Simulated assay, not measured.
Amino acid sequence: MKRTLLPLNGLRVFDAAARHLSFTRAADELAVTPAAVGQQIRALEDTLGVVLFRRTPKGLELTPEGERGLDALRAGFLQYEDSVRAMRQGQSSNRLTIAAPRDFSRYWLLPRLADYAKSDGDLRFQLIAADEPLDFTEANLDLAIRFVDGPGELQGVRLGDPEAVWVGEGDLLCWEGGKAEEIRLIVGDAGLAMEAARAGMGRARVPRLLAEAAGVEIGETEPAQRAYWMMAPLPQWRQQKVRQLVAALTG
Rank of each mutant, 00 (worst) to 15 (best):
Q155N: 09
V187A: 06
D131A: 15
W175T: 05
L172F: 12
R124K: 03
E169A: 15
G152S: 09
Q126G: 01
P162M: 10
P151V: 04
E153R: 12
P133L: 06
D142K: 01
R146M: 05
L172G: 06
D131R: 10
D161P: 03
G168I: 06
G121K: 11
L154C: 02
D122F: 08
L185I: 10
A130D: 08
D161E: 15
A139H: 07
L154M: 09
G152Q: 02
A139P: 04
D122G: 05
E163V: 13
I128W: 03
L185R: 08
I186Y: 13
V157A: 13
V148M: 10
L173G: 01
G156M: 05
G121I: 04
L143M: 05
G121V: 05
G150P: 13
A129W: 07
L173Q: 09
D171G: 10
Q155A: 06
E182L: 15
A114G: 10
D142H: 02
Q155E: 11
I186G: 14
E153M: 06
L113A: 03
D135L: 07
R146P: 00
A129I: 03
L154E: 03
L134Q: 11
R112K: 10
I128K: 02
W108V: 02
L172N: 10
G178C: 05
D131P: 10
I128G: 00
L127G: 00
P111M: 08
I145A: 04
L123K: 10
A144G: 07
D135N: 13
L159A: 02
E138D: 14
F147H: 15
L109M: 02
A164Q: 15
D149G: 13
A117D: 03
G168C: 09
C174N: 15
K179V: 06
G177V: 07
V165S: 04
D149H: 13
E181T: 11
L127W: 00
P162W: 12
L172D: 10
F136N: 00
L173E: 04
R184F: 14
E176Q: 14
G178I: 07
D149F: 12
V157N: 06
D171E: 15
D171C: 09
L141E: 04
I186A: 15
L154R: 08
V148K: 09
C174D: 13
P133I: 11
L143N: 03
Y107I: 08
T137D: 13
D122W: 05
P111I: 06
C174I: 07
E181M: 07
D120R: 01
E132P: 07
P162K: 12
V187G: 12
T137S: 13
E181R: 15
P133N: 03
S119K: 08
L123F: 02
G121C: 09
E153Q: 11
R106C: 06
